[in-house]
C-alpha cells in the first residue's frame, strides 16, 4: 500500500480497525478502508457499527486494535494531527442551550484555535450558508431539531476541514434541506475526504462516488455505485401476487418493495434464479444492492467481488 500522500490531497486510512466494548460486544470487526479526496458513503442498517466506526475515524473513540493513519501519521497515538483539520458531525450531539448560535460557534472556533478575525468571518458565512443568520442571536435551547442539525453542520465546517466525517447528518432536515446538504457535501468532496454514514440509501446514491456497506461490524462491500449495481444485475424481479401468496414469497425471498394495487400486491424481490409466477426482471437500484448484501442473498459473484473491499 502506498503511504505517501499526493501533494495537497489528504488521505485517511483505517487498517484492521476493531472495537470491542466492555461486555464483549464487537461493534467494529477488522475494518480496513483507505480514503482519499472524494465522498465515501457508509451504508448499513441500524446497529451495524457505523457510528462506532465514525467515532473511531474521528478520534473520539479509541479502537481496540488496528491503526488509523492520516497522511501517514498514526492518529490513535497523535489525535491532534487529525483533529486540527477535522470537521465532525456526530449523530447525536448537544449544545449549550442558553448560548446563541453565534456565541456557540465563536466558542468552538476558539477551541479550534482560529484567529479572531478569521473566526468572525467564517461564522457569518457559515450562518448564512445554513440560513441561521436571523436566528443566530437566539438561544440554542429554542431551536428546532432541524435548526440544531444546521448548527452542527456549521461547526463541522468551521475550520475549513480537510477531513469531514458526518454521521447520519440528514436526520431532522426537511426534504429540501436534505437535497441541498447532499449537494454541499458533494461540492466539498472535490478536494477533501468526506465520510458520510447513513442508513438511508437515497442520501448516498445521488452523491457518493464510492460506497461501503457494513453490517454486524464488518465491511461487506465497497465499490463505485455502478460496480455494485453490476453485481446484482439480473437478480432483481417484479411480480404481482395475490394476498395469500405474499407471505410465502416473503419467506423465500428478500423483498425490497411492496405496493398494493387493484390487481394484487406488486412485489420487487431479489433472486439469483427466476422466481416464476410471471416475474419480470427489472433494472436494479442501490436499495436492491444494499438489501442483497446486508441479507447475504446475492449470488456468488457478489461474494467474490467482496474480495476487493477495503481497497
Amino acid at each position: 500500500m502506498n503511504r505517501t500522500p499526493l501533494q495537497g490531497t489528504p488521505t485517511l486510512e483505517l487498517e484492521h480497525v476493531t472495537k470491542v466494548y466492555k461486555g464483549g460486544k464487537r461493534a467494529v470487526d477488522a475494518v480496513s478502508l483507505r480514503l482519499g479526496a472524494g465522498l465515501l458513503g457508509l451504508l448499513g442498517p441500524n446497529g451495524a457499527g457505523k457510528s462506532s466506526l465514525m467515532r473511531i475515524a474521528a478520534t473520539v473513540t479509541r479502537p481496540t486494535s488496528g491503526k488509523i493513519l492520516f497522511d501517514g501519521t498514526d492518529v490513535v497515538s497523535r489525535p491532534n494531527a487529525l483533529r486540527e483539520v477535522l470537521g465532525y458531525l456526530p449523530q447525536d450531539f448537544g449544545v449549550y442551550p442558553h448560548l446563541s448560535a453565534r456565541e456557540f460557534l465563536s466558542y468552538l472556533a476558539a477551541v479550534k484555535g482560529l484567529s479572531a478575525r478569521s473566526a468572525r468571518r467564517r461564522i457569518e458565512e457559515l450562518l448564512e450558508l445554513v440560513n441561521l443568520t436571523e436566528a443566530g442571536r437566539r438561544p440554542l435551547g429554542k431551536y428546532s431539531g432541524g435548526m440544531l442539525r444546521r448548527v452542527g453542520i456549521a461547526q463541522a465546517l468551521l475550520a475549513d476541514p480537510k477531513v469531514l466525517i458526518v454521521d447520519e447528518p440528514t436526520a431532522g432536515l426537511d426534504p429540501e434541506e436534505r437535497v441541498r446538504f447532499r449537494t454541499l457535501l458533494s461540492d466539498l468532496a472535490e478536494d477533501r475526504v468526506v465520510l458520510l454514514s447513513t442508513h438511508i440509501v437515497s442520501d448516498i446514491e445521488s452523491v457518493a462516488s464510492d460506497i461501503a456497506i457494513v453490517a454486524r461490524g464488518r465491511l461487506l462491500r465497497r465499490g463505485a455505485p455502478e460496480e455494485l449495481l453490476r453485481e446484482v444485475d439480473g437478480q432483481v424481479w417484479e411480480t404481482v401476487a395475490g394476498p395469500a401468496e405474499v407471505a410465502a414469497l416473503r419467506e423465500r425471498y428478500v423483498i425490497s418493495r411492496t405496493v398494493r394495487t387493484a390487481d394484487g400486491v406488486r412485489l420487487r424481490l431479489l433472486s439469483a434464479t427466476p422466481p416464476g409466477g410471471g416475474a419480470v426482471r427489472v433494472t436494479p437500484d442501490l436499495e436492491d444492492v444494499y438489501l442483497a448484501v446486508v441479507n447475504g442473498s446475492a449470488g456468488q459473484s457478489l461474494r467474490q467481488a467482496g474480495a476487493g473491499a477495503g481497497r
Partner: peptide
Amino acid sequence: VPALFGGVPASAARRGRAFPFWRLLAG
C-alpha cells in the same frame, strides 16, 4: 426562509499564531 446550503464557504479559516486562550476563557 430562503434557500440554504447555497455553496461551499469561501472565506479562509486561519489559525492565529498564538492559541486564543483569552477568547476560549471568554467562551
